[in-house]
Design a protein around this nucleic acid. Structure first.
Lengths: 198, 198, 198, 198
DNA sequence: CGGTAATCGAGACGGTACGTCTAGTCTTAAA
DNA sequence: TTTAAGACTAGACGTACCGTCTCGATTACCG
């Protein structure tokens, strides 16, 4: 069994990757998404533009890789109750949206992803699928606890929690208060716990 | 007291306004938001670029005016029940997001609005405020009917319905089925109807 | 009979043409042909690159237009003798090659012209044809004076005078002395005056 | 005294040299001087770029070495007459300029040489000096034969023959006919044979 | 025979110019 | 003052090239 065979030629320099990602984050923070030009990234990272395009085929891929990738959602801890689990979920999403870099780039990032089908596919395959798995696990734990009177659709719950936070922050531009996550969680929990009445 | 004094010189041609809006919609439908360049709009509308900039100060204003403005949400009919009113609300939002033009431009439009504070302010003042008034009226009717065990936050309900639809369509890229609006409404209704348990 | 009908839209700004030509000449003088980048021309002329490309399809066309065009050779004065006319011709060519700007760009300009067939055609049609006409007129005057024992090929004479100067300056890199033109003229004159011996 | 001491390490592979020169010639013939990029040469020669830069410090040096070097002009045979010797000289130059590779690269090569003073110096020291020696020898034979009524300047003769051919081929773009060399030679010979009249 | 040192192909690196495209402004003649 | 047309500046885009550097692998000589 051979070790991962190295392709010939000079290998990619990982310091370049780091410099690029760092430059993207700094530029978004300083100048917003509009200031995130490829030239600016190259200049800030002290890197040739070719080094960027060798890695990412477009600005969208670069931003996606720098701001989304690697953020694969990790499994949430079992807090012992549906409501607790939902609060934890809402808090994770809220915290991600509150990252100043992501807050500045968020909607533009979504727009960029939507424009490029291949990036959209990767977004679905990594981030969305990962988060859906978290939601599914959360619902399974609740079912095991007997908290669910009826089976619930993980997709709808996912859309509810993620979308409510997105709308609150990016569409309605409302202030993020400490109790917000638990209020959103309470809403979802109540709906799930009384899903039998139609 | 005189009637609205007519300014000197040639008056604006209202057919130009229509041609511009029509061109914007057609271009978004055909070429996506990326194809919506000012030159393309001018060429398609057979209008000079100056005629566009005389009306809208920037691309953002044009897009906002063409795709959002005039869509001031009209009051929902009283269906007689909270659940019915919520379904109607979800359906209105869902229908707006299903307009092919808006579906193609949606996230880019949100991004564009977010980049320009003055447009964002107008967006809040017209569209968001109007929709919030609709949600508030809906909740007041429900309270009058005695369907609400506790006072509800219109902002949170607004974020829930609007955000869930947004996430379903634009973030999770899930298919829009006929029963979707009522499922979302059921979720919200259950939460509102059992808001007393915490 | 109508006056030259003006095309619609804003007309080209002749100050832009001047600024571009001036920038080309200054840049060649300061930084040589290698420093003559399109960006540098645009920056120096305080002109957008589009304004340059609107006028000239390539760097070659720009340089050709700035350094060659308009230099259509004017008819030489009749000095009264073949040898005098040839000296005047050689002096004109020598003076053109001694222009510091042209001296710096000369061979590169020839190379550029040769790479683009359409520019080469224009070069032939304007500059070469004009100079050939001058040579032909010179020979006709000499024939009328009875200085030519046999008809001479204007093309060969043209190649001899032009080529000798070119080689002296650009290939052999020899110093340009005051008597050079008359030495070259004497060479050509002797050949023409004794063309009968084969 | 030892034979050329071999430096330590792996010796240069002479097949690499050949492959590089061959690639240069083929590329110029196929794609013109513009297609002669270092990457293309390396790819065509199936050689690393470092192998090229180890031998030649720049593109200019490579081109100079591939297209000019080694063409050191060899002494012309004594044809027995000034006119014959001049015809032979013109024919050699004409043949060199008719080599398809050189014909495609000629003016660009001259331009490249002119841009780099060190290469220009080598060009003067090898090619120009060699050819001037040939011209000088030619004139000395003519003087010994008594064909020259007055001493002639080798530089001027050199410029005349070389320049006339250059202008004919590269500036005036005239067709190369079989009799061209002898016509150019006749012109120079007549001038030299009647140099006494001023 | 094992070590040293320069070579080899391959290809990533920083930097820079290219020619195109876009946003937003300005300038013309005509209405 | 409006209109259509289109030129204007400024600057980002993605590609291509140059000359350098960095890999692992190879190939000679030297000890």
């Amino acid at each position: 069994m051979e070790p991962a065979k190295q392709s010939p030629g000079r290998p990619r320099d990982s310091r370049v990757d780091d410099a690029i990602h760092e430059a993207v984050r700094r530029l978004v923070a300083e100048a917003g998404y509009a200031g995130l030009t490829m030239d600016a990234v190259a200049a800030r990272a002290r890197v040739g533009k070719a080094a960027i395009y060798r890695r990412y085929g477009s600005r969208g891929e670069l931003v996606f890789a720098s701001l989304v990738h690697g953020r694969a959602p990790q499994p949430l801890p079992d807090t012992g109750s549906l409501r607790g689990d939902l609060t934890a979920l809402a808090e994770v999403i809220l915290r991600a949206f509150s990252d100043p870099v992501f807050a500045a780039a968020g909607p533009s990032l979504v727009a960029e992803i939507r424009q490029h089908p291949d990036i959209a596919a990767r977004f679905q395959a990594t981030f969305v699928a990962g988060e859906r798995a978290v939601v599914t696990a959360l619902l399974e734990r609740a079912a095991a606890r007997g908290e669910l009177p009826a089976p619930a659709d993980p997709a709808l719950l996912h859309a509810t929690v993620l979308g409510t936070v997105f709308a609150w922050v990016f569409l309605l531009d409302l202030p993020v208060t400490p109790g917000l996550a638990s209020r959103i969680a309470a809403m979802s929990a109540a709906a799930l716990e009384h899903a039998e009445d139609r």
